[in-house]
């Protein structure tokens, strides 16, 4: 064997061995268990903190409001659709305040006139003209929208 190869071959073999050793120690523990990924990452994603409690959770304390809400057209709404994420609120005895929206823009998100919305799906008003300047909730109770307030 030429002297060059006598020197190079061992060098390459050492290089490859080093690589294999590194590969062994650097590969994360659960990698490849179920596929080409870190299997434990699934459990890590599952541990993400939830923010939304769900309507059932709200119902545990506010069953009176939920009962009203579920009577008619707003039955499909979840409390958190308008009030925002409420899990912290629910799990800490109401210590964390939830959002209580009162501005017209909130109602307008669904109810402002827009050709893209199906009129069958939703009641729409011209938000610029309809009692402009007044709050929607001055007249409408969002929990019982079919009733007009005084």
């Amino acid at each position: 064997m030429p002297p060059q190869l006598k020197r190079l071959l061992p060098a390459f073999i050492i290089f490859i061995l080093l690589f294999l050793i590194l590969k062994h120690f650097l590969t994360p523990e659960t990698f490849g268990e179920k596929g080409h990924y870190r299997y434990s990452s699934i459990a890590e994603v599952q541990q993400t903190q939830m923010k939304y409690a769900g309507k059932d959770k709200c119902n545990e304390c506010h069953d009176d409001i939920v009962e009203n809400l579920d009577m008619d057209v707003h039955a499909g709404l979840s409390c958190e659709t308008c009030h925002g994420p409420g899990l912290m609120h629910a799990e800490n005895d109401g210590e964390y305040e939830i959002i209580i929206p009162s501005e017209r823009e909130m109602c307008a998100l669904c109810h402002s006139m827009n050709v893209s919305r199906s009129t069958r799906e939703i009641v729409q008003v011209n938000i610029l003209e309809h009692n402009s300047g007044k709050k929607c909730i001055d007249c409408h109770n969002p929990h019982m929208p079919w009733e007009l307030k005084e």
Partner: peptide, 18 residues
């Protein structure tokens, strides 16, 4: 040179060949 100091014609021929 990695310590390969042989520059005899035979070894240099290997350099060229490889």
């Amino acid at each position: 040179t990695l310590g390969v100091n042989d520059i005899s014609p035979k070894t240099v021929m290997w350099d060229n060949k490889i």
